[in-house]
Amino acid sequence: MIEVKDIYKTFGDNEVLKGISATFQTGKNNLIIGGSGSGKTTLLKCIVGLHEPTKGQVFFEDENFTEMDFTERVPIRTQIGMLFQNSALFDSMTVEENIMFPLNLFTRQSKQEKLERANFCLERVNLKGKNKLYPAELSGGMKKRVGIARAISMQPKYLFVDEPNSGLDPKTSILIDELINELTTEYEMTTVVVTHDMNSVMGIGDHIIFLHQGQKWWEGPHKEIAHTDNKELNDFVFASKFMQAAKSKL
């Protein structure tokens, strides 16, 4: 479980987050949604400590993450997996080396064990046998899957995902969503996904937080999203004619 308490984040005089509190439950797919520039990525980076919040605190199972220094954070960091918007694979390393990288640094496993783990993770994301390819040789969807494989290589308790669907075709996009969803249940992870893809929202949102103007504007499960009278949320979710037409059926 991750708890976020009254987070503020300012860049210069641009106040991006204005007092956000939320709880992300274990084994659940938690979604952060909102328009472009609403501060989703900023919130995610504040939670994992890539940005320091201007004010407020983040707790990982009652441990105050915000107050720790870099070294104190390492034990929690090794339980965090993250998939970045552009996958952020290390482009000087092969697929296999990417996945084994955290294992090399933080475990005492033998080469054979690490290789087996890498193969297991690759198989789990349906990329069996792609070990020796370099990131530049992969398509966008494959990069995301390698990114997921690297994120789960240390068997993390927490999984963070920024825009898993950006730049992917709808079919690949759904496959990635399903993969994240399955892994979350399979490994009992606390998963936090930032997205503005409505398919994901309706498909995998156990618990949804809608950001608007730097605040938590709405919160709830995806089943309730179609029946809310929150105007900004309705404008966001049902922006397209297609979604409007679909609304009556929901």
């Binding site: 890539l50 960091r77 965090i80 970045f84 952020a88 694979l89 482009d91 955290p102 640094l105």
Partner: peptide, 10 residues
């Protein structure tokens, strides 16, 4: 974001 990826791993 490869540097972010390194930091996230600890």
């Amino acid at each position: 974001e490869q540097i972010d990826a390194l930091e996230i791993m600890g």
